[in-house]
Design a protein around this nucleic acid. Structure first.
Lengths: 208, 208
DNA sequence: CCAAAAGTGTTCTGACTACACCCATGC
DNA sequence: GCATGGGTGTAGTCAGAACACTTTTGG
């Protein structure tokens, strides 16, 4: 009878919403991919444990991480309750653990196989919450670099919602919300017109 | 190291949003009002325990009840995690336990004193969630009788949001949402014009 | 006839949708 | 000069907000 945390870590890799999974090297569910998680350590709070897990797998701290839902009866182990968290990060900032066993890897949501335990349910839950929060908060900041173009930002929105967006309407809306600020200058990056760079006014979660 | 549930039970009594509290007859926090709650019993799921608590205090089953958030370090007892739930009920349906000790009672939110444990935080959390769900779901059905007038419904909305609403706009919106249906006939009830009665199309939670 | 609550429509404004062309660059 | 992605404006529609008077009843 103990408490565990599990963390659904999302990012956008090459315009695809992806989740961090770990191939289990022990029973139960040996060889099956699972969300990162584990038992609370003595003296640790739930938030502590989720923060630690996120840090262990990605090296990141001080990023978007929030509690999702609490499940019971996960699998047939003796864990009684599992508190699920979800995080959203900028993939270039993450340094994944490089180990032979329990190796973490990004998977686009569209390419998922069967997951261990009840992780599928947790993941669906996390995806719903992520999409819903994208609509009424600025959490997109979590998945973008410090400075970015509006096209990059639009691709993030499209990856998460899986809906194409109209370019002009998207830009009009983001600008009128006043959540980003034009910053610095144009940059040269390829065979096309240089883009304006923007940054978020707030790199903490705010309701918009 | 164990898991507890606590249930924030809301209703609207005489146009005031109210919550069910119990005066503790034992330490810790003896004599202080607290949200109903307790430890999980062996073999019980979280939902089971919350359902049982709700039933013990109000006699009700099959009403709106959902998980809210999971807290740790509640007070200095040895309980490790507390899973909070919230419920919304029609007060005339509830039959409160009538006991001398641990007696439950409705309190309008505006008249609250200090609460035991971290119940104040849980309550704020529950109130926020309730208000937010009122906006995008039909949960008002939970606090209304089978058949009701649009004025009664408006009073429920006003009690929960603590904002006055325009009568014409409210009615226009509710009717256009198609979540209620005119039913039966007028009724006579006092020194005023008889009102049309409505009922919800769905007495389960739906997103609107 | 008076008090009390029920019922009802119009106008204005702001947000969202749909939609097509020119621009700056690298090769 | 052409391919690539960046950048921009207008018109239509719909939902929400503001707002005041008449109706039915009981006493």
């Amino acid at each position: 009878m103990s408490t565990a945390v599990v963390v659904t870590i999302f990012t956008v890799v090459r315009n695809r919403l992806s989740v961090l999974l770990i191939e289990r090297s022990e029973k139960p569910f040996q060889g099956i991919w699972a969300l990162p998680g584990g038992l609370l350590q003595p003296g640790e709070t739930l938030d502590d444990a989720a923060t630690r897990k996120l840090q262990e797998e990605t090296g990141l701290q001080d990023v978007f991480l929030e509690q999702l839902y609490t499940f019971d009866n996960l699998a047939q182990t003796k864990t009684e309750t599992t508190v699920a968290y979800f995080a959203l990060i900028h993939d270039a900032d993450a340094k994944l653990r490089q180990e032979l066993e329990w190796k973490p890897e990004w998977f686009p949501l569209s390419t998922l196989k069967a997951l261990a335990f009840d992780n599928q349910i947790i993941l669906e839950n996390a995806k719903d919450r992520l999409r819903s929060k994208l609509e009424y908060t600025n959490i997109a900041y979590s998945v973008l670099p410090e400075s970015f173009t509006l096209s990059e930002m639009q691709h993030v929105y499209e990856a998460i919602t899986e809906e194409p967006l109209d370019k002009r309407n998207f830009r009009k809306k983001i600008v009128s919300l006043g959540i980003v600020q034009e910053t610095g200058r144009l940059k040269k990056q390829g065979a096309h017109r240089p883009a304006k760079l923007y940054k978020f006014m707030n790199r903490t979660q705010t309701v918009i």
